[in-house]
């Protein structure tokens, strides 16, 4: 079937197998590989992208289901000059990533959180990140980065 999705502001159109998962579609057909696959069971959140501005796990969404929708991936946060946005920047400043594998999903989850709750408490951040696993950081610096990004936005 044909699937048309606006990805990071650009319209894309591809012929796909009906069973194509959104995450594979983004990585293989659209060619954006920042979004990772970590668990297959919609637990780890590595594949988190924004669907019409809200975080979803793209390993548990069919490409077909989002035909006509808007998707934003990590690549879409970056400015045209390569400049990082507030969340990306805070992740670097606070050392909120080590191996970087959970990072694209973590940043998108954080972005979604801050859109819904611009001034979260530490507890709210921790609860909002429960669907994003990280094995490297113990989450400490990720929480700090999101607090910092929220503060910077004020």
């Amino acid at each position: 079937m044909n699937v048309t999705i606006t990805v990071n502001g650009e319209k894309t159109s591809h012929e796909v197998e009906d069973r194509t998962l959104l995450v594979h579609h983004l990585r293989d057909a659209v060619g954006l590989t920042a979004t990772n696959i970590g668990c297959d069971t919609s637990t780890c959140g590595s594949c988190t992208v924004l669907l019409n501005g809200e975080s979803v796990k793209s390993c548990t969404v069919l490409a077909a289901q989002v035909d006509g929708d808007e998707i934003q991936t990590l690549e879409g946060l970056t400015g045209e000059d390569g400049e990082m946005d507030a969340v990306q920047n805070a992740f670097q400043q606070k050392h909120a990533l080590q191996c970087g594998f959970c990072t694209p999903g973590m940043v998108m989850a954080a972005t979604s959180l801050l859109r819904e709750n611009p001034d979260p408490t530490e507890d709210e951040i921790r609860m909002a990140l429960k669907g994003n696993l990280c094995r490297c950081t113990g989450y400490h610096n990720i929480v700090q980065a999101i607090l910092t990004a929220a503060e910077d936005a004020r």
Partner: peptide, 9 residues
């Protein structure tokens, strides 16, 4: 229920 991503779907 679940996590924010699950609740968005």
């Amino acid at each position: 229920v679940g996590d924010p991503q699950v609740r968005h779907r």
